[in-house]
Computed example of a mutant assay.
Amino acid sequence: MADQHTTLRARRRAQTQRMIQGHAVRLFAWRGYDATTVTDVAEAAGVSPMTVYRHFPTKEDLVLADEHGRLVGERIAASAPGQPLVRRIGGALIDSAAALTGDDAGREFLLTRLRLMISTPALRAKHLDNQYALQQAIIGALGDDAADPETAFHAQAAASACLAALHTALVRWAEEDGRADLPGLIAKALAAVFGESPLPREGD
Rank of each mutant, 00 (worst) to 15 (best):
F109Q: 15
Q83H: 10
A98S: 13
Y33M: 03
L111A: 06
R70E: 15
M50L: 12
V47H: 02
F56E: 06
A78P: 06
A35E: 14
G106L: 07
I76D: 04
V72A: 05
R107L: 11
P121I: 08
K126A: 14
A45S: 08
L110I: 09
L85I: 02
A65P: 00
L62H: 03
V47W: 10
R70K: 14
L100D: 10
I94Y: 02
L100R: 15
D103G: 12
V63Q: 01
R115N: 11
L71N: 04
D66Q: 08
A125S: 14
G69R: 10
V41S: 08
A45Y: 07
V86G: 05
D61E: 13
A80K: 15
D104R: 10
V47P: 07
T39K: 09
A65V: 12
L62K: 08
L123M: 01
L110A: 15
A77M: 09
S79Q: 06
G90A: 04
Y53H: 13
L64Y: 06
T101Q: 09
R113N: 08
S79K: 02
L111R: 10
R75A: 14
V47F: 06
A65D: 15
Q83N: 10
A105C: 02
H68W: 15
H55F: 13
D66S: 14
R113I: 07
R54Q: 12
L62T: 04
V86P: 00
Q83C: 08
V47Q: 02
Q83D: 12
